[in-house]
Design a protein around this nucleic acid. Sequence first.
DNA 1: GTTAGCACTCAGAATAAATGAGTGCTAATA
DNA 2: TATTAGCACTCATTTATTCTGAGTGCTAAC
Lengths: 346, 346
Amino acid sequence: MEQLSERKLKILQAIVANYLETGEPVGSRTISKYTDLNLSSATIRNEMADLEESGYIEQPHTSAGRIPTDAGYRVYVDQLMQERDNEVEEMRQEREGLLERVDRMEVMLKQVAKVLAYNTNYAAMIAAPKNQEIRVKFIQLTMVDDSHILAVIVVDGNVIKNQLIPVEEPLANDEVLKLSILMNSFLQGASLTDINIEMIQTMKVQAGVYADVLDRILSGVVEAVKAADERQIYTSGATNILKYPEIGDVEKTSILLEAFEEKQMLNELVEETLNSNEKGIQVYIGNEAPTQNMKDLSVVTATYELQDGAKGTIGIIGPKRMDYKKVVSTLKELTVELDEIFNKKD
Amino acid sequence: MEQLSERKLKILQAIVANYLETGEPVGSRTISKYTDLNLSSATIRNEMADLEESGYIEQPHTSAGRIPTDAGYRVYVDQLMQERDNEVEEMRQEREGLLERVDRMEVMLKQVAKVLAYNTNYAAMIAAPKNQEIRVKFIQLTMVDDSHILAVIVVDGNVIKNQLIPVEEPLANDEVLKLSILMNSFLQGASLTDINIEMIQTMKVQAGVYADVLDRILSGVVEAVKAADERQIYTSGATNILKYPEIGDVEKTSILLEAFEEKQMLNELVEETLNSNEKGIQVYIGNEAPTQNMKDLSVVTATYELQDGAKGTIGIIGPKRMDYKKVVSTLKELTVELDEIFNKKD
DNA sequence: GTTAGCACTCAGAATAAATGAGTGCTAATA
DNA sequence: TATTAGCACTCATTTATTCTGAGTGCTAAC
């Protein structure tokens, strides 16, 4: 795309800004009055014709105003967006209270998603941070009542899983201790790939009569590691999508909301975000998004990082006609906050 | 409401059944052909006029067919519904595979909700079973690394909570053991109301230098008990609501879906269901539901019970024009299955 | 008690006309 | 050469109008 003149840029910006506000195609007359360029609508029309030829704006139909194309949004996002405004600052203060003193990661992430959705009026998602390769840190066994052993499995990133294992008859304390020592000596520091059939065999032999109990605990361990390995994604405000009728018919919206419920789509999105080398905020406009069904939507994502290198993603999903300014600065703020919170406590 | 003649009942049944199928007002001619009564449309019309006067059916407008009123649905549900059909049996078999071998309650309940929503095409919810008064069963403390104590708290119903407590410096093994014994001796069997300020004081004194660690664990315990006390509700298929356009405009649907996301409304519903003395399946038609915003919806709920008396609720939320037959028998089946599964393992 | 017949009603579909926002182009102007 | 006023033209949307047909209630005959 060729270089745009200062004036064309200003006009483009005005078009996009106005369209974001109203959702209606923007006419030349509006621009003529709206901007401080002091140009007549006719002049604007000429410029708009050029912009259209260059592919930054388009007409939904002959006698309508112009709306931005994906390329137009792109220029707007890349070059024309101003830094944060007061509104965002206000919201930051609102958030303050909400985010403090929540000390369980899950609760906190859910909360963040909620706040984000509420603040922006778009759909929000947040993916929990995940380490590269999960290792077992620690296993603890206890008889919790006469017929159940409780296995507490701690893996990297202090993700903790409990597994209740039914047994026919109670084990004596020292038996439990033995089993516990056995498992820890083999499994501490092991990742999923380390736990091979040979290791399992050896352990079983050493466990003697408790081989099957061990077996069940082991499958618990595997499950725990897998679960820690599975990226948790929390969402909120999916229904906000309904607020933007331009997304299309009920059919489409329905598919989208279902996708949101299933989270499969979001997973892809998160992976893509993390894999891309870009740091910080990423904006996907319409078809730029790495997933299907996003034609009429935009996605803004941000990456945050824990001290140990585990990374997570926050994202906003909304109509292409999204208040990018607000969303981007909100996300920026939020990642900073998240970084602070996590790296303070962790 | 007066007693209806056999024939009127048959006609009412035909109207409801037909309306459930098509969603369109049902005319006299349709009934005349649809049923095996061998009556002309004119006769049907006379009967329909009577039924309308009695308040079982109504006309959306003068020249339209009839649709059932809430009272009409009620009669249908109470008297006219036949027992389970083949379709349901098929689904039961489908479910078989899905439900076996899931051994964590949460995962399982989520799964049930999903399957239910998928099977019925309505929105499904399931509330986890809850005991009357939660008591602490067991607390276990471990140093998980140099700066964290892991507290595993087991409460009634084998609900397990983990709490990671940061400490300035590592505690020796026997210190941890001491703390552990201290806490267990005080807290085992205690419910939330039992943990009073006096008990806390005594414990703190005995904990000596570790008073503040104990304090933090205690707040973990309280949180755990509270969390176990809080009824978890899982939902699925909320977006199915979008499939039934008669629910109303986007506005209404949106409110409803939001309510679903928030779950507050569902909570009320569950409480109501459990408090009502009725056993088994309950059907709320339209305004009968104990919550707001349900004018155009029906709710079918079922209660299931664990061996220890903890009760949970499964529910289906859909349009008034719901396939009650299918829903009721599906729920019936499902409660039986749930009872089996839970009471086998528990 | 049941039914055929008929006039009547009325929501929704189909069609037509009116509106107006916005355009592109041309010719005049600075 | 860049800007602007003016004007004819386009077309989505709105509003008004007519058409259609499913369904009714009532009456009179069976």
